[in-house]
Design a protein around this nucleic acid. Structure first.
Lengths: 104, 104
DNA sequence: TAACTATATAATGATATGCTTATATTATGT
DNA sequence: ACATAATATAAGCATATCATTATATAGTTA
C-alpha cells in the first residue's frame, strides 16, 4: 500500500468531528443536516468534513431527492477497517439514522 | 476507548515522516541520528517527530550512553496495532538498525 | 576542566487546517 | 417562473503543524 494513500486516510480520520461522523455512519446512512445538530458546527463545516472523508475513499454518498445520504464505503482498506472498528458508537450523541447501513 | 486518545494517536501517525520512522522501528531499535539521513530533515525536526510519537504512547526510548534508542512500544492499543501492521517496511529507505526489536 | 558528540528545547516563519459568513448550485413544490 | 430547502463552494481568519536556525542540556573523552 502506498504511503501517500495511508497518510491521506489517516489525516482524514485524525479529527474528533470526523470520528464522530464515522461513529454515526457505523449505524447506517445519515444526511448532512443531521450532523450539524450532533456536532454543533455549521452546515458548510460539516460539508467540508464529509468531502475530506469522501476524497480519502472512506465514505460514499447517495442522492435522495434534495438530500444526500452518506455512508461508510464498503470494500474498505484493512487500515480503515481497523480504524472504524476502534470507533465507539457512543460518540454519535444520538444522531438520527436515515436508513440501515447496506454494507453490514 | 476515549475519543481524545484515538484522535491523538491518529494525529501522531498521520504524517509521512512519522510513518517512515515507524517503518524503521518495525525492524528494531534506531537512534535519532540514523533518522536524519533517512528522512532528509534536520536533527531537531526528527526529535520533534519522535516526541509526538512518544507522547501518543506509540514509541518508547532507552538511553544508551550519549545515544537514545527508540523502539515501538509493546502492549499497543488495538488501533495502533492495526496501523503499524499496515506500515510497509520498504518505506525505511534502508535505515540502520541498532538492535533487534525486543517486542517482536 | 575543556572540547566534542548526541539529543532536546526555543524562537521563528511558511503552509495547512478548521471554522465562520456569504454566495452558488440543485431539486422540490406552488 | 418563483420561492423554498438541502447542500456545496468561496473567501477570510485564527490556530495548528512542520520545517528551519540558534541555543541548551547531558554524556564522553582528552
Amino acid at each position: 500500500m502506498e504511503i501517500e494513500l495511508i497518510e491521506k486516510q489517516l489525516k482524514a480520520v485524525a479529527d474528533a468531528n470526523r470520528l464522530k461522523i464515522l461513529a454515526c455512519l457505523k449505524k447506517g446512512e445519515v444526511c448532512v443536516c443531521d450532523f450539524t445538530d450532533v456536532l454543533g458546527i455549521s452546515q458548510p463545516a460539516v460539508s467540508q468534513h464529509l468531502r475530506k472523508l469522501k476524497e480519502a475513499g472512506i465514505i460514499t454518498e447517495r442522492k435522495v431527492g434534495t438530500w444526500k445520504h452518506y455512508r461508510i464505503q464498503e470494500n474498505q482498506t484493512t487500515l480503515m477497517q481497523g480504524v472504524i472498528a476502534s470507533i465507539n458508537e457512543e460518540w454519535t450523541c444520538g444522531c438520527k439514522i436515515e436508513s440501515e447501513c447496506v454494507g453490514d
